[in-house]
């Protein structure tokens, strides 16, 4: 009887299921949270702290305030790198998004064959960027043995080394990056197209719209939420792309493919100027944050 009365009291923490559930919920989240905080959140603060110090080859020479940032922004190379990051990011988007849209429309049109096509197009996406870079380096080799050069030679075109030409290196790097990633965007756009009711197209043909009008008035507006998702995912991923550049050109020739991301790699990991490198890392982090907040606003706004 006594035992029963104590068990009845719900305020006694242990028998209160709501409190137990709160503890259980937190207990389930904490392990994952711990790892993520340790590796994603702590470094952000630590990086900011380091960016205010003179650190070179892991040796800390003390607090120097904003000097790393001042040097960074006084250096024209930084601005050039930011400009190249923009060219790389928006160049890649400009190539990938139309290609992915076309691919998505084709995939839907082809039905079962379309699903096979999507699988085939996605194979490069499963590959390592560094392996992709190696592979294309071999294909783009001016000769002998270079596949592209041989094909071009067949048509009487003089082979040039695309990767070591200051004008062509950037477009080539963009093309290879897009080759690997554009099909990922096609997944999302294919799903987006699948959400558009087929009745709309039937109605449109009854109303006598041409194919181009159908795209402009139905496909495009109804696909725009998916396009926005694709744009946001790809912008962030292209802005941070560095592996394909390391593998193909190592930032060259004459820095023509040195984006901000590559500069971070060069300054922070190769030259081991970690104070300045952290300043770049923080700038990249802030640009990322800015991009994400921007897209979240856009996506959130579009939904209402």
């Amino acid at each position: 009887m006594n035992a029963q009365t104590t068990r009845q009291r719900p305020a006694a923490g242990e028998s209160d299921p709501a409190a137990a559930a709160r503890r259980a919920g937190l207990a389930l989240v904490v392990p994952a949270l711990g790892v993520v905080v340790a590796v994603n959140v702590l470094p952000a603060f630590f990086g900011f702290y380091s960016s205010l110090r003179a650190i070179f080859f892991f040796g800390d020479d003390g607090f120097i305030g904003w000097r790393n940032y001042a040097e960074l922004f006084a250096d024209p190379a930084t601005w050039a790198a930011i400009r190249r990051s923009m060219i790389f990011t928006f160049g890649s988007l400009g190539l990938a998004v139309p290609l992915a849209t076309l691919a998505a429309m084709g995939i839907r049109k082809l039905g079962a064959w379309g699903r096979l096509l999507l699988t085939v197009l996605l194979v490069p996406w499963a590959m390592s960027p560094i392996v992709v870079a190696l592979l294309w380096k071999w294909i783009l080799l001016p000769s002998p043995g270079g596949l592209l050069a041989s094909i071009l030679a067949h048509f009487g075109i003089e082979p040039i080394n695309l990767l070591s030409h200051p004008d062509f290196a950037m477009p080539t790097v963009i093309a290879v990056g897009v080759w690997r990633t554009f099909a990922f965007a096609a997944i999302i756009l294919t799903a987006g197209l699948g959400q558009i009711p087929a009745d709309l197209y039937r109605a449109a043909s009854v109303d006598g719209l041409t194919a181009i009008e159908r795209f402009r008035r139905i496909t495009f507006p109804l696909l725009s939420p998916s396009l926005l998702i694709v744009l946001s995912v790809l912008t962030i991923s292209y802005f941070n792309e560095v592996q394909i550049i390391i593998g193909l050109t190592a930032g060259g020739p004459i820095h023509s493919t040195t984006t901000l991301g590559y500069q971070l790699f060069e300054v922070g990991f190769v030259e081991l100027n970690q104070g300045k490198g952290n300043a770049i890392a923080i700038v990249m982090f802030l640009i990322n944050l800015f991009l994400i907040v921007g897209y979240v606003r856009l996506l959130g706004g579009g939904r209402k």
Partner: peptide, 25 residues
């Protein structure tokens, strides 16, 4: 906490690799 996870997914790890390296050292 949920937003924290989502933010961690959105922000590419690359931008934080340098401080992570120093931290790991």
């Amino acid at each position: 906490l949920l937003h924290l996870f989502m933010a961690a997914m959105a922000i590419p790890s690359y931008a934080l690799l340098l401080p992570t390296q120093i931290l790991f050292v």
